[in-house]
Simulated assay, not measured.
Amino acid sequence: MKKSLKIWSSLIFILFIIPIILEQIPSAIPKDVAVVPIDEQKIVYAANIFETESEVQTDMRALLYNTHSHEAFEPITQKHDGKIAVSHQEVNIMALSEKVKTQLEFNGVGTDIIDVDVTAEMNKVGIPYHKSYDVVRPYVQKALNDAVYDIILDIHRDSLKADRTTVTYKGEKFAQVVFVIGGDHANFKLNQELAEKMMFEMEQIVPNITKNIVFKSGHGVDGKYNQDLHERLILVEIGGIGNDEAELNRTSVVLAEAVFQTLISEAQSTK
């Protein structure tokens, strides 16, 4: 009788203690926080958590800016203030540039951002939208005069819906990338060459994450996009108006890794 009582007491204790133990075990990663493995040494959370300490120290430097600084993404503006918008003065493409900067620095690429809200400055004095590249140009020129950069990215988003700007890979959605090259200047092929190298590296990480390069030249388009200022300056569109924050963040991880791999490959080829 005493032996049976001890057995039952032990079972009751175990049933009581199991829930307490389970509460102490860390829960699984929430579904809305996705991880993107670039390699075995780099696991970067792609929703809102970003690595802040670089594993690699290099002399490589990047410059980022946003000619169309109020370009926005509908899911993000809706989450911010309940309004679906493709242009927003608070939550816009500038925030994405900050995330790209974080990822570049994690990869050891020192990164500067031109700290100017181009659209806001234009709105203050009534400059029309199509003059954006003219307005940002002196800021870019000054930055290039002040420092030497290995790559300069003018970051935009496409105007297409999410079904045309999204790719799924290994169960995760990524915002697709388009590089735009202006053909109305003498050295555009050098800008094109850099874009092609970037595309190659991105495709090694996530197949179909890039689309074909878009060339613009002739009447009715800018044709330069300030790429005549530097052979390492390229315009990159990350996603479209319908991509959400997690998709954009995943792509920022891939883009930053591709920049690093491109610059490393170029440095090795010159040795």
Rank of each mutant, 00 (worst) to 15 (best):
V206K: 11
N123C: 02
F13L: 10
K3T: 13
D112R: 11
I49H: 11
I238F: 04
L255Q: 06
Q41P: 00
S269G: 05
A143L: 02
I213C: 01
I181S: 04
Q227P: 02
F260G: 08
S97M: 10
D154T: 06
S97F: 03
E23G: 03
K124Y: 03
E90F: 15
K101N: 06
K99Q: 14
N212L: 06
T210A: 01
M122T: 02
K83C: 00
D117T: 08
P138E: 12
I127D: 05
Y129H: 08
N249C: 11
S69E: 13
P37S: 15
L63M: 12
S10W: 02
K3Q: 09
I14Q: 07
E71L: 12
M199F: 01
F174M: 05
H80A: 15
R232K: 12
L11H: 02
N249K: 04
A46R: 13
G218M: 01
D222F: 01
K101D: 00
L144A: 06
Y149P: 06
I20A: 09
N191Q: 04
V180L: 14
G223C: 02
I234G: 01
R137M: 03
E40T: 08
H219M: 07
F73N: 10
Y133C: 08
A28F: 12
D222C: 06
V253T: 11
L153K: 10
I12R: 07
N187M: 04
K142G: 00
V33N: 12
E231T: 03
V109A: 03
T262P: 02
Q41V: 09
M199E: 10
Q24I: 10
Y139M: 07
I213F: 07
I234Q: 04
I152W: 04
I7Q: 07
R164Q: 13
R232M: 04
E74K: 15
G183D: 01
E121T: 05
I21M: 03
K142L: 10
Y139G: 05
Y65E: 10
N66S: 15
R232A: 07
N191C: 11
A95T: 14
N123L: 12
S4W: 15
V100H: 03
K161A: 13
V253E: 14
N92C: 14
V109L: 04
F174S: 08
A143C: 10
V135S: 05
Y133H: 11
M60Q: 10
G126Y: 01
F188E: 03
F16D: 01
Y225H: 04
V178N: 09
L64A: 05
T270N: 14
K131Y: 10
N243G: 09
Y169R: 13
A258K: 04
V253K: 14
P30W: 07
S159D: 15
I127L: 10
D81H: 10
A95K: 15
H156C: 14
T251N: 14
V167W: 05
E201P: 00
R164L: 13
K3N: 12
G240C: 02
V33I: 14
V35H: 09
L15S: 07
T262I: 08
I84W: 09
H230I: 00
F260P: 00
N249A: 05
A143F: 09
K31D: 09
V135W: 01
A246K: 11
F174Q: 05
